[in-house]
Amino acid sequence: MDFLELINFYVIPGIVLGSIYALGAVGITLVFAILRYAHLAHGDLATLGAFIALAVVTGLGVSPLVALPIAIIATAAVAVGIDKVFYEHLRERPKIVTVMASLGIALMIRAVVQVVWGVDTETYSRGIVRPENYFGLRIRDREILTVIAMIALVGGLQLFLTRSKWGKAMRAMSDNPNLALLSGIDNKKVVMLTWVIVGGLCAASGVFLGLNTELKSMMGWQMLLPMFAAAILGGVGRIEGAVLGGLVVGIAEELSVLVIPSEYKAAMAFAILLFMLLVRPTGLLKGKVL
């Protein structure tokens, strides 16, 4: 197999898939770090974001990229709303209670999507798009877009977390909640901000998943486990770790068919994760130990 073929059919799809995983994994790792529980409704929130974008695309006749900001804002609002109505009361309870609540939320969001948009497979634009040829590299425009958008969103988030006042407050909450509260950080605002960011990232991952494949009501749920694997792989609480974890999982899944039967492709994310937990329990980049 020549080098170009390896890049074109294994590495590039892996990077694109990895970027979608990364967008989800960053959200998961934020919830883990600041709120300290596993948010199981993450995938279905991404589905919701993708379908909101679809509504905008079909309703206004604009391109998915124009619809993306609207979907991000709408999904962020939904995420904040869910937190206010359902999760907020459980904050003082054992975290496992919130994990179970998020499972119920996942069912509810999926039901809403299925009732509102139906269960048919949908796409943003009909037809197929053949890849362009860049010096032998075969890449579709939307794939370049996916990777750039991922880098831009995560880069922006990183800037926000390191430079702005509220970003620093979020990091403080993640590092030591008691100390952060003592030093006068408004817990409620930090939580709300976290959900705005997480909801937005969910929508972005859903839209790009839909852009690269199709929209289905189960699409988010099916992405949930690899996204979790990516978040933990990168090191909990580490934004750049989640990106790295997402890319590793994505590329490893695509490369796996070279060595193992393709029906075991889905197991690849977990095999890497188990190996990582054994040799380096804090993840690729040093994350928290929960």
Partner: peptide, 20 residues
Amino acid sequence: FAAHEEGKASYRSNLAELAK
């Protein structure tokens, strides 16, 4: 002759293998 799992976002590597 290869099986695949449902619900993945990319099957291009599977297809590249199949085309071999």
